[in-house]
């Protein structure tokens, strides 16, 4: 038997909203430690890895590990039927999981709706992502990162990110001309969510597709801060951390001339 009840249902709505453009079908791997998902976009240029800890649900019950093969478009349609204040419960019979039950209860509990989503068999390759000691780790307000991606997209569909000890610089070059945004670390200790920090092993400069980065910023509502991790000739990691877990986006760089 699998049952996971989340009082902040809105969080699940936002999470699914932040991956729906990137991934169509995916397996939700459920175990006693929680729910995780890993999937690449169709072009295999980006990968999303999502993890929700069992402690974030109450109750959480997963008698044995199993996978829920889900079409995310269909799941998103059903999630639209949940109110932002609703408590959301996911239930499945872990032996013959051919459908996922979703329960939406409003706060005063006089309105309860129940949906069943047909599950699919999805055989997806699972990539092993080694723990990496990145050349540069940058923390910044997630809204700031979203704005930089949106602004520089008017100039080009690629952005070069340069990180040095005391600056992260985003540069775009295109037909109309060029644009760049430079951020310096802040020391505002009174407003931690506004802070910008740079942890530098060595300077790094990489180029990425802004189309994908803009897509990743759908995770902005999940967290005040976003973490960018860069290493030479490695995919960029963009992480939005929540109390219950995290959503990580990986993007392969553009390399060579």
């Amino acid at each position: 038997m699998f049952e996971a009840r989340l009082t902040q249902g809105a969080l699940l709505k936002r999470l699914l909203d932040s991956v729906k453009e990137l991934v169509t079908d995916a397996n939700f791997d459920c175990s006693e430690t929680g729910i995780s998902l890993q999937a690449m976009d169709n072009s295999h240029v980006a990968l999303v890895s999502l993890s929700l800890r069992a402690e974030g649900f109450n109750p959480y019950r997963c008698d044995r590990g199993f996978s829920l093969g889900v079409n995310l478009n269909s799941l998103n349609k059903i999630m639209k039927c949940a109110g932002n204040e609703d408590v959301i419960t996911l239930k499945a019979d872990d032996s013959s999981a051919d459908s996922l039950c979703l329960l939406f209860e409003n706060s005063s509990n006089e309105r309860v709706s129940e949906y069943e989503l047909k599950l699919m068999d999805i055989d997806q390759e699972h990539l092993s992502i080694p723990e990496t000691d990145y050349d540069a780790t940058v923390m910044m307000p997630s809204a700031e990162f979203q704005r930089i991606c949106r602004d520089l997209m008017v100039v080009s569909e690629s952005v070069t990110i340069d990180v040095s000890k005391d600056e992260i610089k985003f540069t775009a070059e295109g037909e109309l001309g060029t644009g760049n945004v430079k951020l310096k670390p802040t020391s505002t200790i009174d407003k931690p969510e506004e802070s910008i920090t740079i942890e530098l092993g060595q300077t790094v400069s990489l180029q990425f597709s802004l189309k994908y980065l803009s897509n990743f910023t759908r995770g902005t509502p999940l967290s005040d801060q976003v973490m960018l991790c860069l290493s030479d000739n490695m995919p960029l990691l963009v992480e939005y951390k929540m109390d219950i877990g995290y959503i990580r986006y990986y993007l392969a760089p553009k390399v060579g001339d």
């Binding site: 690449m40 072009s43 295999h44 990539l127 080694p130 690629s158 180029q207 995919p235 990986y250 392969a252």
Partner: peptide, 14 residues
Amino acid sequence: LKKQHKITDFYSEE
């Protein structure tokens, strides 16, 4: 122009 790489150029299957 630089070439867009793939995630699978860096991370392999488990």
